[in-house]
Write a protein that binds this DNA or RNA. Structure first.
Lengths: 158, 158
DNA sequence: CAATACAGTTAGCCTTTGCTAAGTTATTTT
DNA sequence: AAAATAACTTAGCAAAGGCTAACTGTATTG
């Protein structure tokens, strides 16, 4: 067996790019797993909110098309969202957001807008910015979000 | 039923923050789903590479601890990685990366470093930067990565 | 060298998120 | 108002990624 070269349990006394202490490391991964649990939910809720706003109503078929997913998948997801108290609907009718759903949609929309604007301010092309924003939006902390906002503002007012 | 207010199939002639055309919208979500498929794989491979480099070897127990996950989960994942030709190992012994695994680890490490450096250059605190980098790293396009690199360089040389 | 402790694996379970195929309800068209 | 089309739901399947519990191998140490 190879002896680990002086593996101390405390912070780290080795090179600059060493591994973080393992409990901190684990926390990072936990944060990502956690984000994954809510992000799809948020995407659905955000999309439903957007559809209602822009097209007057949110129908499963539209959601399926925009998400690039089968209608059956949407049905199942909507059942879950109803169970979580985010969406309300009657069978075979279009969808509505509950108050909690509205809140979540508003938050998501805002995050999304901030990240998208930031990427554009960074000089990213429109198509790429859209794709990256969709992926990044759920992994950006409040702190980073604030920094992005500051940056965009500064860039745009020059 | 509510009549959708002039829903044309072509690009969009409505307000500034309207929904993107649905095929483009679907592509965004597809990109995210796609990233999700590979990102865990990349995290494992990156971590295995880091452990080998910094501690001389990569053991399941270390991985489990650092990922904040049970050993059984690691075993299963390693089996998958072996099936994909990214990892090599003999039962009950420590893990190695194949050539393809090394390549993937190098790419991941580089992406990770660029994003982390960028967040720091933006003024984000260390702990937050680490967490956000872990989440964002898999959702950043080449184009954005390049922009981040440019930005960090510029910031640091002033 | 036997006993114990530690590391790794296997089996079996659960949830999420996707799918297809088949059935049901609503809407539109004739 | 009947038939046809479109929208929605349900049932059943699969893969990924978690878990615990039970088992098997490896290493340490008395």
């Amino acid at each position: 067996m190879i002896e680990p070269p002086d593996e101390s349990p405390s912070p780290c006394l080795c090179e600059a790019d060493a591994l973080p202490p393992s409990d901190q490391h684990a926390q990072q991964y936990a944060a990502v797993r956690n984000a994954h649990e809510t992000e799809l939910l948020e995407d659905y809720v955000e999309l439903i909110g957007d559809l209602i706003e822009h097209q007057g109503e949110a129908r499963s078929a539209d959601i399926a098309q925009r998400m690039g997913v089968s209608q059956a998948t949407v049905s199942k997801m909507v059942a879950r969202l109803k169970g979580l108290g985010l969406v309300a609907s009657k069978p075979y009718r279009s969808l509505f957001l509950t108050e909690r759903g509205e809140e979540m949609a508003a938050m998501s929309r805002q995050r999304h807008a901030i990240v998208l604007r930031f990427l554009r301010a960074l000089g990213i092309s429109d198509d790429t910015a859209r794709i990256d924003a969709e992926g990044m939006e759920h992994h950006v902390s409040e702190e980073t979000l604030a920094a992005m906002q500051r940056f965009s503002q500064q860039r745009e007012s020059s």
